[in-house]
Design a protein around this nucleic acid. Sequence first.
RNA 1: GGGCCGUUAGCUCAGCUGGUAGAGCACCGGACUUUUAAUCCGUUGGUCGUGCGUUCGAGCCGCACACGGCCUACCA
Length: 505
Amino acid sequence: MTMSKNNSSDNHRDDQSHVRRGKLQALQQSGYQYPNHFKPNHYANELHQRHEKDTSETLDSHRHSVQLAGRMMTRRLMGKASFFNCQDATGTIQVYVRSNDIGQDAYDEFKQHDIGDIVYIEGHLFRTKMGELSIYATQLTLVVKSLHPFPDKFHGLNDPELRYRQRYLDLIVNPVVKQVFVTRAAVMRFIRQFFDNRQYVEVDTPMMHPIPGGAVAKPFVTHHNALDMPLYLRVAPELYLKRLVVGGMERVYEINRCFRNEGLSTKHNPEFTTIEFYQAYANYHDLMDLTEVLLRELVLHIKGHMTIDFKGQQIGFSEPFKRLSVDEAILQYNPNLKQADLSDIVRLKAYAHSIGVDVTDVVSSDLVRMELFDKTVEKKLIQPTFIDTYPTIVSPLSKTTIDQPDCVDRFELFIGGMEIANAFSELNDPDDQAKRFQQQVNNRESGDEEAMYFDQTYITALEYGMPPTAGEGIGIDRLLMLLTDQASIRDVILFPQLRPNTQSD
RNA sequence: GGGCCGUUAGCUCAGCUGGUAGAGCACCGGACUUUUAAUCCGUUGGUCGUGCGUUCGAGCCGCACACGGCCUACCA
């Protein structure tokens, strides 16, 4: 850390950071050296839980001795005795400090401490007049001086920009934030267990791809100096995971980041976390069933019941998930459309135009239907809903439905108006896959920046023979949004992408 | 990328019709030995996001830019 920031505040005697630095200097002059020998052996929440039922008399007679360390958050100084709240990794516990008990010098020193300082406390438990479990301090030591003023003790930190840029402050003063990320860890752990229990092997495949593939998306490009070649941050692990299936790893999964060089929104961060999993000798119907079991068990495990509240709506997981084809969904949410209209591009386009959906450059009825689906159906699919029977043209890695070459064995799962999962029976006909890649290359040449590249090494792998396989990707961040009722993906990602700001950080 | 909104003290926010900025918390000083948004008394603290313009005069009006939020577009 440089001192530059402090220089500008030297002019102001009472600048809070300056005052705190002055206190630190005084401490250092009397020998303070950022000590690291304190060993707290209790946590705030553990104490609250263990002694929830203990009365004042019980606590006084047992005199439970405790050692605790944490951040001093609110202080109530009353002359020769004080209370403050000490916040550690688990929660907050109140501490009572009396000059009689810790000594006048130590008490004077305590009065110099500031909100945000990290302290070590020894003492014993007691209950206050108001009945609050607290620590009666017999010793109190400053461990780390905090050099910046803290956010308002009551209003906290509201400004989203500050919350994301200084997430550590957000975590300190907004308890729900920490809860979201603890839940995130629990979700990851549960999902791993779920697949481990089903004989899946967790693998790590490259994050840097010589040929970006596995999804229709714009990649980030970087350059490897020693190899002198471009590398692409992966948009999906799909093609590598399927190589592993070819190699005989018949059940694999990977939980990791994907990167897409596209717009940001409440549902999109440039890097996001997915689980992708592949299972040989399974088809997309098997994965629908598996997904339903996974989500039902996950919701139960995380929430303790089968319902979640998301943006004021109740979403239920106990009933079987709805299953609709793309066309059925379009008809259901567009009552003015008839079945016969769906294959008539002129009537489709006229209808799209009439409801303000721009399809002027769209050339096939399949694509118009997907556009209509995206614009009129997706955000209305609040309850868990599987959508299947996707057109082949938008699914270059999916197996076509037998005897129906225009559509593929694929589904997507929508919950809370968001796409949560995408799955299909994998295309394992290498010649068909080569044709689909070629189509993507043609799209790219006619200006589609998101179209896929031709990946001959993947075709070669398929030529060795991939067992019939079904694969699926689930967006972990969006799942977290649902489980923690957060409206923005930035609130389930610790450090969401922001533009750099010269003022803070 | 487009539209709308926001940016005022460390934090949370007021600021009227254009007339040199206020509150609460925090901070600093004082009182106070069971408080808990502690209380009481007295202070301190501002390049009003940045720049240009209009005006006798701009936190307020206009333009440009920066950052953020929401909606939209694309994806998961």
